[in-house]
């Protein structure tokens, strides 16, 4: 990621030169150097392209559906976010581990992406999922207390996506290999 600002800086003088030449009528049909625009896609403050940001946003949307769902079932909250096949797995495990035992997630969570790879049909987002203050509590509880189960960890995580039409759908999960 550290190379992105360097590449961006190298493009700016080129663009300025081209614009200056055009304004001064220094030549017919001034052309930007070939490939300049594609080599420098616009990036956000974190250095991610719009494509990468879209994938990160899909992680955030899924985490809200998973950990911020309150008493809703993951079957309700994961619609449109997960592939059918993976969603069936998630619904099964969440029903057995969270919903049927009468539990819900409670607490703050945050995901910090560290690596985003986007291809034509597949994408992956790797980062650290902070669940240090996330608890499993009885569904009716409004706060955690003794007897609640605390995750208490920052998990290295990789979220895998498949392209479906215009959207990325979560298709799998890996234990990330990054250090959190």
């Amino acid at each position: 990621m550290s190379d992105r600002p360097v590449r961006w800086r190298s493009v700016v003088p080129t663009l300025l030169l081209a614009v200056t030449l055009a304004a001064c009528g220094g030549g017919d049909d001034p052309e930007l150097p070939e490939g300049a625009a594609s080599a420098a896609p616009s990036v956000d403050a974190d250095g991610y392209t719009a494509e990468q940001r879209e994938a990160i946003d899909r992680v955030d949307a899924f985490l809200a559906a998973a950990y911020g769902r309150g008493t809703q079932s993951i079957a309700e909250t994961s619609k449109g976010l997960v592939t059918d096949e993976y969603r069936a797995e998630l619904i099964k495990s969440n029903k057995a581990q969270i919903e049927d035992p009468g539990l819900k997630w409670l607490g703050p969570y945050s995901f910090t992406a560290s690596e985003v790879e986007v291809g034509d049909d597949r994408a992956s987002v790797t980062g650290c999922l902070d669940l240090t203050s996330m608890f499993l509590v009885p569904r009716g509880d409004k706060a955690a207390g003794p007897g609640s189960t605390n995750v208490g960890q920052v998990l290295p995580a990789t979220y895998l996506f498949e392209r479906s039409g215009d959207a990325w759908l979560l298709s799998g999960y890996d234990d990330g290999e990054t250090s959190c």
Binding site: F62, A66, Y67, I74, L90, S93, N94, Q97, I98, W105, L129, L131, V151, Q153, L155, A157, Y159, L170, Y173, D175
Partner: peptide, 8 residues
């Protein structure tokens, strides 16, 4: 072992 998709 916690899994970051609301599972363990």
């Amino acid at each position: 072992k916690w899994i970051g998709v609301s599972e363990y």
